[in-house]
Amino acid sequence: MTQDAMIDEWYPVGLVSQLDSFGRKTALMGEPIDVASDADGNARVTANGRTLPVCVRYGHVWSSLGQPQKELFAIPEADQPGRRFVDVGVVRVRCSPLRAVENFLDIAHFPFVHTDILGSEPHTEVQNYKVEIREDADEVWATQVKFYQPQAARSASGGITTEYMYRVPAPTCSVLYKTCPPRPGEWDVITLFVQPLAEDLCDVWPWMALFDDESSMTDLIHFQQTIFLQDRSILENQIPRLLPLDPGMEIPTRADLTSVAYRRWLKRHGYTYGAQLVAQ
């Protein structure tokens, strides 16, 4: 069924901090897998007795059912001193893994879904920004995205105009860079790592690398969980459940330019696990 290019990609399958020798039973693209630590404490992922490729990075264990052609994408900020690294924890969502990423890329929903935190009425306008598929890196990028936010981060005191950059380095992962209230000149990094369980079911592992010396770790986790849980109920009600890759099914507005580029990029690579290809 899944002779899909996505088979050779890396996916998050667990938190490094929660690895144990008993193992965690989960799934990857419909196949049951087991994530455990071996006798030496190293992460080990198996599918039906077969040992799968493993990589440990950004607080998570990553694996693949196929043969990854590349190393996991780089996030240089993950090695920058002074940042706090936040394992937000898994949240299961009954939606296509691609839908989860697409929603993350969409800023127009902020005032309506994250009211009084990431957006507020009447500040609903999305200003012009730049979207490109960077051929050298083979990633989707949106830059110069500006938006008025009442409470942009746990560390923000009051409303500010926030600037964002979005990056899609892998079909089910997105990295967002946003204005860092306590450290102008640096970007806070907020990621969404999505584990595809089935075409319409995923486990989402948000992770962050922030400059914030004030907030407690629990406060940082709760801030991001609040936001993601507001998205969850929207994601579970999207129709169609799979992400349509054919143009014309949903009419794009300016805010959706990133989504259009993301879909085009998915289609170009044949990344179609969780996608709907034929208009119904």
Binding site: E121, Q225, T226, I227, Q230, R232, S233, T253
Partner: peptide
Amino acid sequence: MPGIHRLHELKPEPHIEPGEA
């Protein structure tokens, strides 16, 4: 709380762009 919304009627009227579906 996340997942429990205020009544939409209690929010300020949304601004609708001309021509938006």
